[in-house]
């Protein structure tokens, strides 16, 4: 484990963009989720999905959670 964390720390500049993009995806999905009163399915579940499922959670929300009207 130590070696991996060490390897990651050495290349922080390489990993950081990935984390930032993940964060952007999450924040935008959350904003959109809160902005709409109605989602497909309970809103609080979508919030959990967006926050706790990395990358895939926000995608799932954008594809299935939004209600278009």
């Amino acid at each position: 484990m130590n070696e991996l964390t060490q390897a990651l720390q050495e290349n922080w500049a390489i990993i950081a963009p990935v984390l930032i993009l993940q964060a952007i995806l999450m924040v935008v999905a959350l904003i959109d989720c809160f902005k709409h009163d109605k989602t497909n399915g309970p809103q609080w579940i979508w919030v959990l999905v967006i926050v706790f499922i990395n990358i895939i959670g926000p995608i799932l929300y954008f594809v299935f959670g939004r209600r278009n009207d």
């Binding site: 963009p17 990935v18 993009l21 993940q22 952007i24 995806l25 935008v28 999905a29 959109d32 990358i55 926000p58 995608i59 954008f62 939004r66 278009n68």
Partner: peptide, 17 residues
Amino acid sequence: NFKWLWLPVVFILLGVM
């Protein structure tokens, strides 16, 4: 509906992985 944002971001993440 943010398609212009999330689709490119997802593709960058996929590409970088």
